[in-house]
């Protein structure tokens, strides 16, 4: 009986510890931290303090004067935050894996329509959250899609359109760089039609390089293909998602 009790108590303790490590309410904010709604309402150039969860990262670069910087797609339960060129050491960058909770203090900025946080500092906090892809298919082509900026999204049943023409004047489904002036390893651009609206998408090579499934999948696309896709709703003079997954429409 005693042995059984010990085993039960030990299991209970393990379960509690496990729960401590993973359970977190991504909508709950610490003292002095903005909710997503407050962040969205904050003026451009104002200081913002947020708590958010890393969802993906573009890469780490050495930068003169600050050592290094990383660019991150992050999100809480309410919305997305793009952290551009956030100073961090390579060691810290490696710690910021998917789901990691961080408290960020920086300046809200807008570059060609993309709302982001720049000149930021961060601390890692306890907590973990991975955002599910929000289906924005019905919002494509509408102004309302801006509310989903920087979040992880899904678009279903998109039809591949010609992104442009090759040197012989033939329609093509994808380009290296926005106009075909690139080569293997550069960003891939392609275009889809959803609800009658055209949407340009990018396989951002720092986020998903040439060895990734999505990079390879986009290079196999044909005009007229019907696809489901996922990615982060980046903005450049309009919605321009950074795609992380492309599959034949289910």
């Amino acid at each position: 009986m005693k042995k059984l009790l010990v085993i039960v108590l030990a299991l209970a303790m393990l379960a509690t510890l496990a729960a401590c490590g993973t359970k977190d309410d991504p909508a709950k904010k610490s003292e002095g931290v903005l909710t997503y709604a407050e962040y969205a309402a904050a003026a451009i150039d104002s200081e913002v303090v947020i708590e958010t969860y890393v969802q993906a990262k573009q890469g780490w670069w050495e930068k003169e004067g600050v050592g290094g910087v990383g660019t991150f797609y992050t999100q809480d339960a309410e919305g997305g935050y793009f952290l551009y060129d956030m100073p961090c050491s390579k060691a810290d960058y490696d710690k910021l894996v998917k789901g990691t909770k961080i408290k960020v203090t920086g300046k809200k900025a807008e570059w060609s329509g993309e709302v982001e946080i720049i000149d930021a500092t961060f601390v890692i906090e306890d907590g973990n959250y991975t955002a599910p892809a929000a289906d924005v298919t019905s919002l494509v082509g509408k102004d309302e899609i801006a509310a989903k900026m920087n979040t992880f999204i899904a678009i279903k049943g998109a039809v591949v359109e010609a992104v442009g023409q090759d040197a012989e004047g033939n329609d093509v489904a994808w380009f290296y760089k926005w106009n075909g002036a690139g080569s293997e390893g550069d960003d891939l651009y392609f275009k889809v039609n959803v609800n009658g609206a055209s949407l340009t998408l990018v396989v951002e090579s720092y986020l998903c390089g040439p060895d990734t499934d999505v990079y390879k999948a986009v290079k196999e696309l044909k005009i007229g293909d019907k696809i489901d896709l996922e990615g982060f709703l980046y903005w450049y003079e309009g919605a321009q998602p950074h795609v992380t997954s492309v599959k034949a429409a289910g």
């Binding site: 040197a167 926005w178 106009n179 002036a181 690139g182």
Partner: peptide, 10 residues
């Protein structure tokens, strides 16, 4: 180096 210009690549 090109200015993202296909003609320059040509």
């Amino acid at each position: 180096k090109n200015d993202t210009n296909k003609t320059q690549i040509d």
